[in-house]
């Protein structure tokens, strides 16, 4: 159990160390307001990372998350603008995100295109579509404040905790169960580890791949709709660069880029870690440039560490297997 979760334990230890460090060096870290906001910000990245981890564990990548979020944001804002009940807007946002994920999955599997190219192209197309459908006046993009209270409710905190945070925790738990305790989750991991072998073992690769994209789209839709509710409006920057933040969070948390390893808890830990870094560095008075630089360095270190960690684990496994054989 301990050996299986070694990577997660390292992530948790790093998070705890960072918390202690920022708690000691700054005086506004361990204050309720900061923790609540930190969790809200982590939830935004975390929701997308949660979906992204399915695609990554399945051996793929989804670069369309940002574009999908932007488009879902516009759709959700438009639907909220006409006065539909908040819960309906939320469902439409999530469903539309899932639909965009389905499109990605269908293009990848039916046209046999690589995920990288497909999602890069579809993300650009989604952003373009968002720009075409966003609120305009005399041809110019305008900012519209949503006054739909039942929808804006989802942007406000409940008992001090934001809906975004609540949704993130629930989604992570549900997705973790799906990933680790269901046949589907097992198939995703099998597909990521060795796609051909999985297919030969009877795994419906096409279905599994499509579903990973649907999950990623659903999470992007949920994150985007909740963000629009928080901001009481949408803009062209919703989802900007979020795919990269989500991928970074997954990698930092321990999801393998090559696929086959990782789960939503890894994505959760990675999101907390990334947000913690930004939060703490702002508090320490580091400039925005410095913050970006350190974020990049942290991702690089995490990837290098992951590479070494995987190699060491593989070596240990091989040695153990050889030892077993020798014993026999």
């Amino acid at each position: 159990m301990l050996a299986k979760n070694k990577r997660k334990i390292i992530s948790i230890a790093l998070i705890v160390l960072l918390c202690i460090f920022f708690g000691i060096t700054t005086n506004s870290f361990f204050v309720p307001r900061n923790i609540i906001q930190l969790l809200r910000q982590a939830a935004y990245t975390g929701l997308i990372a949660c979906g992204m981890c399915f695609v990554m564990v399945g051996g793929g990548i989804d670069l369309s998350a940002g574009g999908a979020m932007c488009l879902v944001g516009v759709i959700a804002a438009r639907v909220a603008f006409v006065g539909l009940p908040g819960i309906i807007v939320l469902i439409i946002g999530i469903a539309f995100g899932a639909f965009l994920g389905l499109l990605n999955g269908l293009i990848v599997t039916k046209l046999h295109l690589t995920e990288f190219v497909t999602t890069l192209a579809s993300g650009t197309a989604f952003s373009g579509l968002a720009l075409l459908t966003i609120f305009r006046e005399r041809g110019r993009v305008i900012s519209v404040t949503l006054t739909n209270d039942s929808f804006n409710f989802f942007g406000k905190p409940v008992g001090g905790i934001y809906w975004m945070t609540i949704a993130w925790i629930i989604a992570t738990v549900v997705m973790h169960i799906i990933m680790t305790r269901t046949k589907f989750g097992l198939h995703v991991m099998a597909m990521g580890s060795a796609s051909k072998s999985a297919e030969m073992s009877g795994v419906n690769i096409t279905f599994v791949k499509i579903m990973t994209f649907v999950i990623a789209g659903t999470m992007a839709g949920l994150a985007s709709t909740l963000l629009v509710a928080y901001q009481t409006g949408t803009n062209q920057n919703v989802g900007n660069m979020m795919e990269f933040n989500a991928i970074a969070a997954c990698v930092v948390g321990g999801v393998m880029m090559e696929g086959g390893k990782g789960d939503p808890i890894c994505a959760l830990l990675g999101s907390i870690f990334m947000t913690l870094i930004t939060n703490g560095l702002y508090k320490m008075g580091l400039t925005t440039g410095g913050t970006y630089l350190l974020q990049g360095v942290v991702i690089l270190i995490a990837m290098a560490f992951d590479g070494q960690f995987s190699r060491l684990s593989a070596k240990k496994r091989t040695a153990a297997a050889a030892g077993k054989k020798g014993g026999e």
Binding site: Q37, T278, T287
Partner: peptide, 18 residues
């Protein structure tokens, strides 16, 4: 620096309040 991004600006405002 908000980098032209409203979401970053929101984070920074929250940070300043805290």
């Amino acid at each position: 620096d908000a980098g032209f991004d409203p979401n970053t600006q929101i984070t920074l405002i929250n940070e300043c309040i805290t």
